[in-house]
Write a protein that binds this DNA or RNA. Structure first.
Length: 116
DNA sequence: ACAGTGACAACAT
DNA sequence: TATGTTGCCACTG
């Protein structure tokens, strides 16, 4: 049974290129509608290589890149998304109606939540 | 055991 | 619109 962080990573790995979702929606998928902050915390602790997580595909509920006081990182996220075909504005915003990921099917969620 | 820490989100001004 | 406030929660030392 993976811990919460691993569950978050498992979900994020399912997000296809060119699509995005929010911290809160990931929390909801994992059955913890109020754990949005913990999702952000999980991603912030990523050490890149060990995991293979497309962290750039997670933005806040407003469709905005949510990394504060780290301009270079926000810029990196924007560039990574643009490389996938996502239109990101100079203010680090994007159109959720156009790029929002539908989410997982119940079978896939069961895999993540209960192991396989 | 416990207080501090965020890449959140919803609401209230 | 744009800030500010408050509730949240998993993880850490």
């Amino acid at each position: 049974m993976p811990n919460f962080y691993e569950q978050v990573y498992a979900v994020v790995r399912r997000i296809p290129p060119g699509k995005v979702t929010s911290y809160g929606r990931i929390a909801q998928m994992l059955g913890r509608p109020n754990a949005a902050r913990a999702v952000g915390y999980a991603l912030s602790s990523l050490k890149d290589k060990e995991h293979n997580v497309p962290w750039q595909r997670v933005v806040n509920s407003q469709g905005r890149i949510s990394i504060v006081n780290r301009e270079y990182t926000a810029q990196l996220q924007a560039d990574l998304l643009r490389a996938e075909g996502v239109a990101v504005s100079e203010q680090f915003t994007l159109d959720l109606d156009q790029h929002l990921w539908e989410g997982l099917h119940l079978v896939e969620l069961d895999d993540i939540l209960h192991g396989w």
